[in-house]
Amino acid sequence: MKKIFLKFIQGGSLGLLLFFLSLNHAQAQSFFTAKTLSSSPEYGTITTRLVPEEVVDLINKQNFSFDEWSSFFYIKTNPNAPAVLGKYSIKNNHLSFTPKFLPDPKINYFVTFSYPKLSELLSDAINEQNVYSDVASFEPPETTQPEVISFTPELDEVPANLLRFYVYFSAPMGLENPYDFITIEDKNGKPLVDPFVIIPEGLWNINHTRLTLLLHPGRVKQGVGPNMTQGDVLLAGNSYTLKIDKSWKGSSGEPLKADFSQTINASNPLRGAMNINIWALKAKISNGIGILTVITDHPLDQPLAQRMIFIRNKQGQVLPVQVTFDSPEQLKVLWRHQGSDELELLIDPRLEDVCGNTPHYAFDLEGTERTPSTEELKIKFRVN
């Protein structure tokens, strides 16, 4: 049987950069969408992002049983539990699962889609090795009409080479094209032309309440003739306004409560790798909870940091933590203290600052090797 290869194909250096972005920002989006509106007949449904049409055609020919479906696309109450019962469907190249019984809002559900497992069922007809996992919560929002409740990074001035914004909503947003409702204007009110990397369907978390907006790296041409160079979307020293139109509808069909605008002041670009060796750490214990305050050398990408920073005790156990931010350059890591005063802060080497720089490389410097490292990063500290 002929294999289907799922590739990113794009010409030129911009294609390579966008390919790198697509790999490096997997943590910023979910492969799934979860229906969390209790008033919807699809409450509890999990839907994948677009699946290639060739793969959908192969699946349609198989008439999979529940056991076959749930071998590659499943929802569980914990990783070792059996798959939740329900039915599968395909619409417009999206695969969906709807549970037989309404989900419990008190439970976090583990969701997985495995291309290798699907390939086994299709007799190795596809050559895709990605496995997508996420955690879904079905606690209904307090109101079905959405509004913008938060915008990050929360900085008085952002570096001109800022890579992304995050917009948080109070309720799930619909499947309309996000870029039809969002603009960035200069100080004269003139919209910037194509400031965002356009990602089909947008970069959403699983509940469709957090949108990631990627600014085009090196999109703007500066200079004239042979001296023309790539520049940043934002220019240092300039002021901009990001606007979101209230006609944008949420999953409930209701539009945003109000227009949203955010002033953006651009400062000098932030180029260069992070240096974790100069991070300042101070730990204390309060009512049995460990609190580690970390001051970093670069403003961190907050959603990534909340998934990529951990603590390990002297016995080698990685402890569950909660990461909160006082500012993009100061965070707190909380854990349940269990007596060990000698600990390590573990940092995923893919952690980025707000401009895409990691502890191993600078994101947008010419000649920089941008291959993600697997080297473990750690900083030892003691509880005072």
Results as ranks from 00 to 15, higher is better:
residue 114 S to R: 04
residue 377 L to T: 03
residue 270 L to W: 11
residue 280 A to E: 15
residue 75 I to P: 06
residue 131 V to P: 04
residue 362 A to L: 00
residue 365 L to F: 02
residue 312 R to K: 15
residue 129 Q to K: 11
residue 293 T to A: 05
residue 195 P to G: 08
residue 88 Y to S: 09
residue 3 K to R: 14
residue 316 G to Q: 02
residue 136 A to Q: 12
residue 111 V to Q: 02
residue 223 G to V: 05
residue 287 N to H: 07
residue 230 Q to E: 01
residue 234 L to W: 03
residue 374 T to C: 04
residue 283 A to T: 03
residue 148 V to R: 06
residue 175 L to D: 15
residue 84 V to T: 07
residue 342 E to R: 13
residue 3 K to G: 03
residue 256 L to H: 08
residue 358 T to H: 04
residue 355 C to N: 04
residue 150 S to R: 01
residue 91 K to M: 05
residue 50 L to V: 15
residue 357 N to Q: 10
residue 147 E to P: 02
residue 157 E to F: 07
residue 160 A to P: 02
residue 102 L to G: 10
residue 33 T to F: 11
residue 295 I to R: 14
residue 164 R to L: 09
residue 52 P to W: 01
residue 162 L to C: 02
residue 238 N to S: 10
residue 299 P to L: 06
residue 57 D to M: 09
residue 29 Q to G: 06
residue 259 D to M: 03
residue 263 T to W: 00
residue 53 E to S: 12
residue 10 Q to K: 14
residue 139 E to F: 11
residue 186 D to I: 04
residue 298 H to R: 15
residue 183 T to I: 08
residue 281 L to M: 12
residue 269 P to H: 03
residue 326 D to R: 06
residue 343 L to S: 04
residue 27 Q to C: 12
residue 152 T to Y: 02
residue 58 L to P: 08
residue 210 R to N: 09
residue 81 A to S: 13
residue 69 W to K: 01
residue 273 A to M: 04
residue 134 D to N: 14
residue 25 H to C: 08
residue 251 S to F: 01
residue 142 E to P: 02
residue 265 N to E: 14
residue 295 I to K: 15
residue 29 Q to F: 09
residue 331 L to Y: 10
residue 275 N to T: 12
residue 170 S to M: 00
residue 293 T to W: 00
residue 333 V to E: 03
residue 138 F to D: 06
residue 112 T to G: 09
residue 185 E to Y: 04
residue 316 G to I: 06
residue 64 F to P: 09
residue 14 L to K: 07
residue 183 T to K: 14
residue 37 L to W: 02
residue 31 F to Y: 07
residue 181 F to N: 11
residue 307 R to P: 00
residue 195 P to F: 07
residue 330 Q to R: 15
residue 378 K to C: 05
residue 321 V to E: 05
residue 359 P to S: 04
residue 211 L to F: 10
residue 59 I to H: 08
residue 126 I to E: 10
residue 252 S to F: 04
residue 173 M to V: 12
residue 369 E to P: 00
residue 282 K to C: 00
residue 258 A to Y: 14
residue 137 S to L: 10
residue 69 W to Y: 04
residue 63 N to G: 08
